[in-house]
Design a protein around this nucleic acid. Structure first.
Lengths: 146, 146
DNA sequence: TATTGTTATACTCTATAACTATA
DNA sequence: TATAGTTATAGAGTATAACAATA
């Protein structure tokens, strides 16, 4: 195995991430954009979450979270509740409609990428899966595991 | 090793890519944004390129390429030449200033991610490097190799 | 008529600064 | 005064549609 410089690896990760994100947005045929889907998936998996929690997990600025959550709410995909003990705090969780959409969208959404992945060898897929775990760790926060 | 479904893997790749791209843009301290840096790096590595070539390699729509190239040119980072045999065609290559900026920017730019990667084990870095190659293949086009 | 690239336009994603409501 | 979230605003990134220039 080649000796991997963190510097060079970082550049390649950065470049391929930029390009892949662009391609994923282009291919996007689902009901939800990448950003909304990521937020909703996190709310489903980790909810109920305060908006601050969601901001920390997804590494979004608070106003971005406000916007995303407002739109998800308008579409009936989440439920919002105000904490009775601290009325500044809002918690969100996925609604039945949101869970249904997420499930339905799952197929359509990743159709292109899943198709590409199917053309890889099993070995390549495993390498990718191993690396995805590394990246997931990198994009995690302490808060997230709490 | 776990059996990896392409469907599930695609979802995880998609989510982590979205989030990582957001984080990279936030951390971005360099002179060039992610998009400009990716385009300039490709021009350096593969140039001279026609704008159509660049569009194909980076999976950008033609108007996006026009905008990026115009700005890179205004900053003196690339050279543009019109093909004398077919005056519709423009070719771009990196200028000395562009190459210099790319080299200088390289450090600053990926500082955050490189730092994170340094905290990984050598094994994790190698897994990541292996996967980056897979992803690079996925985001390549036939044209690119020609 | 087909191809290369550009212009006009608009939408998504995202942030920073200033604010409101609550504690 | 400090914190959770919102509003106002702006900029980056990107695409589609219509166009111009050249072949």
């Amino acid at each position: 195995m080649v000796c991997v410089s963190s510097q060079q690896l970082a550049e390649r990760v950065s470049h391929v991430t930029t390009r892949l994100a662009r391609m994923l947005r282009q291919q996007d045929e689902g009901e939800l954009t990448l950003t909304f889907r990521a937020a909703l998936a996190t709310i489903e998996r980790r909810g109920p979450l305060t908006l601050g929690d969601l901001a920390a997990i997804e590494h979004m600025a608070p106003p971005t979270v406000t916007k995303v959550v407002t739109q998800l709410d308008e579409r009936g995909l989440i439920q919002r509740t105000i904490d009775p003990d601290d009325r500044r705090v809002t918690r969100v969780s996925v609604s039945p409609a949101g869970a249904a959409l997420l499930a339905a969208d799952r197929k359509r959404r990743t159709e292109w990428l899943a198709g590409e992945l199917r053309r890889l060898s099993a070995d390549e897929r495993e390498r990718l899966a191993a690396a995805v775990e590394v990246l997931e760790g990198l994009t995690s926060t302490e808060m997230q595991r709490a």
